[in-house]
């Protein structure tokens, strides 16, 4: 399962909100995962249809292009919650206490600003492809089978809005830590040392190993 070890929890309001949001985020991430799975099934159907029955799947490319945003965006907030978006932590790893929370706070504030702008920009991108007066409300359609593109474009501002909520929560979390001088604040991803991080990943893998009936033999 996901590495949520890096985010502490308690009974406080912010932690409860964190938990609520996490449930939504996990559901969205699972949608991403299921979309990858259906991409696989779609390809198998397409290849099978084409090679075995000489019946190619109409609009195969169109469907893939529709599925990609589902895969790429729905889990974005889930990844931010765990602090798993890649970064260079040489500098922040050397910081402690209020200095660290200040850096983190500025960082999430900037990201929040960016995401608010991108919600606006991607919403306007959606808006240009949507027309109440048109058939299927479509003002932009895919090349071969004329699928309306607006649903896929709408996913972007939706996913980015959820991320913005997450960022607001993290602004609150880091801000609180900064003002109160907390050592182990809840609801924000804490920096693990590189080793601890790797240990978490390894643990994840060993957890995965348990239920697998292994076909290799032991000496």
């Amino acid at each position: 399962m996901a590495t949520s070890a890096a985010v502490l929890e308690d009974g406080s309001l912010i932690s409860r909100l964190d938990g609520q949001l996490l449930r939504i985020e996990q559901a969205l991430a699972l949608v991403s995962g299921l979309a990858v799975f259906s991409l696989m099934v779609l390809a198998v159907v397409s290849v099978g249809g084409r090679n075995a029955f000489n019946a190619p799947l109409p609009g195969y490319v169109d469907w893939i292009e529709q599925a990609m945003p589902l895969i790429a965006f729905m889990g974005i907030s889930y990844v931010q919650r765990d602090g798993a978006h890649i970064r260079m932590d040489i500098v922040v790893a050397a910081l402690k206490g209020r200095a660290l929370w200040l850096f983190e706070l500025i960082s999430v504030l900037l990201i929040l600003l960016l995401m608010v702008a991108l919600v606006w920009g991607s919403w306007s991108h959606f808006g240009r492809s949507f027309d109440f007066a048109a058939p299927l409300w479509s003002r932009d359609s895919s090349i071969d089978i004329s699928l309306p593109i607006w649903p896929a474009k709408l996913l972007v501002p939706v996913a980015f809005s959820v991320l913005s909520l997450r960022l607001m929560l993290q602004v609150w979390g880091y801000g609180r830590a900064l003002i109160l001088g907390l050592k182990h604040p809840v609801a924000v991803p804490l920096i693990q040392s590189a080793a601890a991080q790797a240990a978490a990943e390894a643990e994840q893998l060993s957890g995965a190993d348990n239920g697998t009936a292994n076909s290799g033999t032991e000496d």
Binding site: P58, V61, I143, D144
Partner: peptide
């Protein structure tokens, strides 16, 4: 693409 579809081909278009 529509013309080819009319004779049973499958338009599969990329830019």
């Amino acid at each position: 693409g529509k013309a080819f579809a009319a004779v049973g081909a499958v338009p599969t278009s990329v830019t």
